[in-house]
Design a protein around this nucleic acid. Sequence first.
DNA 1: TTGAAAGCGCTAACAG
DNA 2: CTGTTAGCGCTTTCAA
Lengths: 348, 348
Amino acid sequence: MGASLKDVAARAGVSVKTVSNVVNGYTYVAPHTREKVEKALAELDYRPNLSARNLRRGRTGVIALALPELDAPYFAELSRFVIDAAAERGWTVLIDQTDGLADRERQVLQGIREQLIDGLIFSPLTVGREELAARTDNTPLVLLGERILDGPTHHVAIDNQRAAREMTEHLISLGHTRIGAIGAQDNPSANTAHLRLAGYRQALEAAGLPYDDRLTPSTRSYHRADGAEVMRRLLALDEPPQAVFCFNDLLALGALRTALSAGLRVPQDVAVAGFDDIEDGRYSTPTLTTISPDKGQIARTAVELLDARIGGTGRAARRAEGDAAEVREVEADYRLIVRESTVGTAGA
Amino acid sequence: MGASLKDVAARAGVSVKTVSNVVNGYTYVAPHTREKVEKALAELDYRPNLSARNLRRGRTGVIALALPELDAPYFAELSRFVIDAAAERGWTVLIDQTDGLADRERQVLQGIREQLIDGLIFSPLTVGREELAARTDNTPLVLLGERILDGPTHHVAIDNQRAAREMTEHLISLGHTRIGAIGAQDNPSANTAHLRLAGYRQALEAAGLPYDDRLTPSTRSYHRADGAEVMRRLLALDEPPQAVFCFNDLLALGALRTALSAGLRVPQDVAVAGFDDIEDGRYSTPTLTTISPDKGQIARTAVELLDARIGGTGRAARRAEGDAAEVREVEADYRLIVRESTVGTAGA
DNA sequence: TTGAAAGCGCTAACAG
DNA sequence: CTGTTAGCGCTTTCAA
């Protein structure tokens, strides 16, 4: 075990308190004393023991980021931003992967890591309002990506429904009348999917186009393989769609692959659009039309909200303020980005 | 602050020790007592304070994973495996992003998070043997991906040079004689790049092909944009290469994009190969020939090595054993995966 | 300006 | 089988 405050104090010939003062940059320390202490500190290569400090202060400087899978590019990119934003506040981020499993998500809410983390940023896939309300753990929480209306917690998300509507309108404006959607979910608490589907239907309706549920097959998850497979089914229909709106970019990349290897030209034979604006879609051939949520803004906002919730003074104070503070729902920005997969310029 | 052991003890009418025994699942506790305690535990919704426990035990159950960027798919995929492997041992993983910056990497080695983490898994980009030797922090460390020979630390990596040679041989076996390589690095401590370049040169030499350094431009980093840009330069040569071996898949995807948007057919006009086997390459069109390191094995091995190094008994014991234990260099498996981008079956 | 000492919540000797 | 008690290293009144 490294040197402790006591060791340093002994070596410098002062009290622990004085060393502590120096370490924590308190003001009133005589220059001479300070010097002695700093020398001892350096000689012993002192490093504060965070467990002890945390125990005393009642906070740890660690927050958790819980998300379905780190290896889905959208989450990887988002994590990057969250970690950076947290680092600016001197926080360290610890990652919890839920795999989108209901059980694991519930565990996260109940605070597996409690007392180790000062706060939690959580991107749920399946848990709903009830689970949230049932939460007994009172670690500050900010939700991401889901829009659980009137939920009891801070959250930040884009307007999924509006974004989906815009994308569908884009496809309609291109003259397509038979438009598929990939990514509907059977799970009734898959909020995001429902909102995107709702946006899609709204746009169809507004344009007077019929809704055909054969064109909106649900998928098991949101990976490339799901998109590839469902696209095969869509293309096998008597009347295949002229365009497909995929509820995330991975699905779109999978769908793209299926279309291209079937010898179809994209977008001439079938247009493909995604959602999330992951980097892959900027380099695929054709490049991918998509909705680009402002991930940096989402991350920064989440961290800020959490910071406000955690407050400056440890658990006791937090509890007092926290409960009083009202819940905030922040809507993040997004943009529709039109690329080759719907308007095609390249030779593909 | 939640209920403490003392609170529970008071409520159950027993001593703290007994409660502790129950919480930690010790054997000799009278059924009746246990019952009482468990009731109190539940009523008070007791959760152990990890800071206190850690302080006492001298370990935290947290390890750090330090890597260049979480949003590079290779690292995202690797992280996933590391987090899963760590979870099996009850460890939590905290992520440090270095952005490959020498300063940040040095900080990581010097233990920014010391006393908060029991161990460190580190995938360095720039630091070399000297920095490693100069390390004063004695948190157990396992290096990833780099092969710093005779280094003072455990590490796990594939044989980069051999893998690169195999890939180059594959391209040669296809009849290509003018083969480019994308991803050389000017930075002399960019070990991985040098090894891959060395493997490439070995293969050329063995086949009696000349080495032409105009065909091996260096890149600033390993992103899609770098691959795209360097590929443009390569294609602008008087005698452009018939095939390019990119030192990672992102470079390859960028190069692919450049080639395709220049109207070239891949692999007929130019073959492209990558390294890492990220998921993108399995769904790009054409799909990407690549080297597939066994990421699961790498992650599991790293976690195992760390576990052995941390030992069962906190810092004191660790120091004693640790220094004695010999350094282990584990070589992970990899496979050459041939896909469309070099042997082309699809219509692309 | 500095020191002494209490105590954060927990675990583990040691007794009983 | 259960209780007492001494710290782990740190921060923080309270005094001096």
